[in-house]
Design a protein around this nucleic acid. Structure first.
Length: 269
DNA sequence: ATGGTTGCGATGCAA
């Protein structure tokens, strides 16, 4: 089972680039982020005609996540538990029925968290958008623990808006005061990992120079000024099935690209 | 270098 995560930065803007990549890469399942439309605005027929089931959790203008799957889906659930007042569409999960094994897949869009406010001692304040990010990560950790308790293959795939380590940025010094790389952000990411999850790409590839996002501005792609913020986290039962992992970096050089590229895994299901 | 670019949707916000 090939599972990918792809922040498309608007489904309407990617109406050609997304089908093009699907035809080339032929993933079985895709976690999409930033569809930037309500459910009714998602062009589901286009993907159904390509053989994909479509489950969306959309929102007008911002955010919005979806799952595309060539395999049957069961028990679809929308929204990250833990705060009924949270209006932002950043989480959808479903069980993907493989030939031999089922996989619980969560498609997530973790809050960016910028801009960050700092106090007089230059410590980041846990207020505003950054406070929302850290609180969202606490909720995610609690929900991930609940899912791990099932002791089944589990994949948490998405745009985490987290640069895990300095080697995951071409210019880490430029991100020192950014919500994607602050020590508190990276610690919160490690707290989720430390539940017993495996970061799939790093289980297969070591060293610097692997990125999943290049800003549209200032020639970031041409300068290879990238960061690695799109991740797939695996439960022990899913990690046992991991065959391969990769980043489709060439997608960034295509026509009218997203600022993110797909990251994928292959599981022996 | 406090700029730079893109998407959504109709203006400025989010990234």
């Amino acid at each position: 089972m090939k599972i990918a995560t792809f922040n498309i930065n608007g489904i309407r803007a990617r109406i050609e680039a997304l089908p093009r990549w699907l035809s080339e890469a032929r993933p079985d399942v895709v976690a999409l982020q930033e569809i930037k439309t309500v459910d009714e605005g998602f062009p589901r027929e286009l993907f159904e005609d390509m053989g994909y089931r479509v489950e969306t959790h959309g929102q007008k203008s911002f955010n919005g996540v979806a799952i595309l799957s060539r395999l049957p889906l069961e028990d679809v659930s929308r929204g990250l538990p833990g705060d009924d007042s949270d209006e932002q569409a950043r989480w959808i999960e479903a069980t993907v029925m493989g030939d031999k094994r089922a996989v619980r897949l969560c498609a997530l869009y973790l809050p960016n968290g910028n801009p960050v406010e700092f106090d007089a001692a230059d410590r980041p304040l846990h207020t505003g958008k950054y406070g929302y990010k850290l609180n969202w990560m606490r909720r995610m950790r609690a929900h991930a623990q609940t899912l791990l308790d099932r002791e089944e293959p589990l994949v948490l795939a998405g745009d985490y808006n987290i640069i895990p380590q300095a080697e995951d940025a071409a210019r880490p010094e430029a991100w020192a005061r950014d919500a994607l790389f602050l020590p508190e952000s990276r610690a919160a990411f490690r707290q989720i990992l430390n539940l017993g999850l495996t970061e799939a790409f790093r289980a297969r590839h070591a060293g610097p120079g692997h990125y999943s996002f290049w800003d549209y501005q200032a020639g970031a792609w041409e300068r290879n000024n990238g960061i690695r913020i799109d991740h797939l986290l695996l439960s022990p039962q899913a990690a046992d099935l991991l065959r391969d992992a990769g980043i489709d970096r060439d997608v960034r050089a295509g026509e009218k690209p997203s600022d993110h590229v797909p990251v994928w895994i292959e599981l022996d299901t």
